[in-house]
Amino acid sequence: MAQLTDILNFRQVNDRLTLSGQPSEDQIAALAEAGVTDIINLGPHDNKGALVDEPGSVASAGMAYHYIPVDFDAPSEQDYIAFTNTMAALGDARVHVHCIYNARVSAFMLRYAREGRGDVPAAEALMEGIWRPGGVWAVFLGHEGDIDQPNRYLGYDY
């Protein structure tokens, strides 16, 4: 059986929330075995590395699938509102949120924490352990000093 920690950029936020890059078919099954009831995918289905039929794979594993495709080049307030509404509707469910690399997700989680829904220093550290957003993502996060910077990724750019 696949280990959750083998999922690209896997992070456990608390007992009910985990985050990552794109899980494989086996890793989706492992998430279900770990008690996850809902998957939120912020990565568009046509992204390189996305599963052929993730909604079907998640349903086959007995979990609910929530799809909020966020264009990496144009994250929007509507995307973020859809995410916060989905998180609120799921209440105390065990949720796994992913995209392709855990960049979109970690940025969304930082905003989520800043709005009183999490630990801000922990969310900042989580994102810093994956990437440092520039450009449109710096705008999305209100990081004025990084707007003219490119996106930088741990292990590549810093």
Rank of each mutant, 00 (worst) to 15 (best):
P75N: 03
A89C: 05
Q149Y: 07
P121R: 13
R111H: 09
N85L: 11
H143M: 15
V136K: 00
A103F: 14
S76E: 11
L154I: 15
D148W: 05
G142V: 00
I147G: 04
Q149D: 09
M127P: 02
R114I: 11
R132S: 13
Q78T: 15
G145I: 08
H98M: 01
G145M: 10
W131G: 01
E128V: 12
A125M: 06
Q149F: 11
G155Q: 11
A88P: 01
D92R: 11
M127I: 03
I100M: 15
R152F: 08
Q78L: 11
G135W: 00
S106C: 15
A89W: 07
T84I: 09
A89E: 15
R111L: 07
G134C: 05
S76R: 07
F72A: 07
R114S: 07
C99H: 03
Y80N: 05
R94S: 14
H98C: 03
D79R: 02
L90P: 01
G118D: 02
P75R: 03
L110R: 14
F108I: 02
V136M: 03
H96G: 03
R117G: 04
N151T: 10
Y153S: 07
A122L: 10
H143R: 13
G142H: 03
P133R: 01
V139P: 07
L110H: 04
A82R: 12
E144L: 09
P150T: 11
M87W: 10
V105D: 06
P121M: 10
P133L: 04
D92E: 12
L110D: 00
A74S: 13
Y101H: 14
C99P: 00
A138K: 05
D73F: 12
Y158Q: 12
N102M: 04
T86Q: 01
D79S: 08
L126Y: 04
E115T: 11
L154C: 09
G118C: 04
G129C: 06
Y80I: 08
L110C: 05
D92C: 05
I147Y: 02
A89L: 08
A122Q: 13
A88N: 08
A89H: 04
L154A: 13
P150I: 11
E144G: 12
R111S: 04
R152D: 09
S106V: 01
Y156E: 14
N151L: 07
P121E: 03
M109N: 07
D157S: 13
A125W: 09
G134S: 04
V139R: 15
I81H: 11
F83P: 02
N102V: 12
D79C: 09
L154Q: 14
V120W: 03
D148I: 08
D148A: 15
D73P: 00
A93W: 02
G91N: 14
Y112G: 00
V136Y: 01
S106L: 10
G116R: 09
N151W: 07
A89N: 06
V120S: 01
R104Q: 12
R114Y: 06
E124V: 05
V139W: 06
R152Q: 14
A74K: 13
F140M: 06
G118S: 04
Q78K: 12
A89M: 08
P133T: 02
H98S: 01
Y158S: 10
V120Y: 01
I100C: 10
H98D: 03
V97S: 02
A89K: 10
A125C: 10
